[in-house]
Computed example of a mutant assay.
Amino acid sequence: MSRSSVQRALKRNDLHPQSYEMWLHSKDPNFREKVNDIVSLYLDPPKDAVVISVDEKTGLQALERKMEPQPALPGQPGRYEHEYTRHGTESLIAGFEINTGKVVAQVRPTRKADDMLEFMEKLAQAYPDQNVIIVWDNLNIHKDGPSERWSRFNEKHGYRFSFHYTPIHASWVNQVEIYFSILHKRCLKRSSYRSAEELKQAVLNFIKQWNQEEAHPFNWTFGGYPMQHERKEAA
């Protein structure tokens, strides 16, 4: 087949084999039930409980740019240096309260079961007198495991906690992912940090400022199944 024949066939059928875009698809057999369960918590949260969306943002890189980023000038875009030195990574664990937009966070070099357990203890201290509904994904450290970590944790805290899992391969259901996007754009993207500790403090300072001045819930609309939603945030 000649080149021109191929081009005509592609054009006639409106095919663009060179073009690709990301596709996020969940094959969870209980997708509908899990999505409806979580969205119902977002749209009509129980009055006697607080709903916290929890996840991890791992591999935060402390990149020191060879030259400091330059701000935008009239008629000239901002610039940042493409050469950098790596100074290690940090892992952020965060809980986003869906009613207020307040964030509880922990930053450390690792994201292991012990790190998650310590974060959950911090969350229990932040909400000492309320029932707490946790929304998170299916990561292994979010599960009970042989040690029954979350059953024992819940017993320790008077069975105030309940856990709801997003469908497999459907992290977009988790509202804290929206917050991570905001943090990435405003604190991490095109940044320059001279150490992992400097990166850690910048992330914690951003979260502190967010809680004090900007925290707000995200407004979702849900059109039924198949899932259609709209995310709005005043970043």
Rank of each mutant, 00 (worst) to 15 (best):
R12F: 03
L24Y: 15
F180S: 11
L199R: 11
R152F: 14
H164I: 00
W210A: 03
I98E: 11
E56W: 02
I178A: 06
E68Q: 13
D14L: 12
Y80I: 14
Q76S: 13
E233C: 08
D48T: 12
H169Y: 15
S192Q: 00
I38L: 08
R231L: 12
E64F: 05
E56Q: 05
P45Q: 10
D55R: 00
V54W: 06
L24G: 02
H216R: 07
M22G: 03
D129H: 06
P71Y: 12
N13H: 15
T166K: 04
P45E: 08
Q209I: 09
V107Y: 11
E118N: 13
E148Y: 11
N211V: 07
Y165T: 03
P71I: 04
N36Y: 01
T221H: 01
E177I: 03
E177S: 06
T221D: 08
A126H: 03
T166E: 01
D48N: 13
E213M: 08
H216F: 01
A196E: 02
L60S: 00
A62V: 06
R231Y: 10
K34C: 04
A196I: 12
T110I: 05
Q175A: 07
K185W: 05
F222Y: 14
T100G: 09
E81V: 07
L92T: 08
V103W: 02
F96C: 09
L63E: 11
K232P: 04
K112W: 07
P128M: 02
E97H: 06
E177A: 05
N174Y: 01
V50H: 04
K27S: 13
D114H: 04
R79H: 06
R108G: 13
A105R: 01
Y165R: 06
P109M: 10
F206D: 06
R186N: 15
H184C: 14
H169A: 02
P17R: 06
F222N: 03
P17D: 10
P226I: 00
E21F: 14
E118Q: 06
Y225S: 08
A202R: 14
M67C: 13
R152K: 15
N140S: 14
A235F: 10
V39Y: 02
R231G: 10
S151I: 09
L24V: 14
I38T: 09
D115I: 11
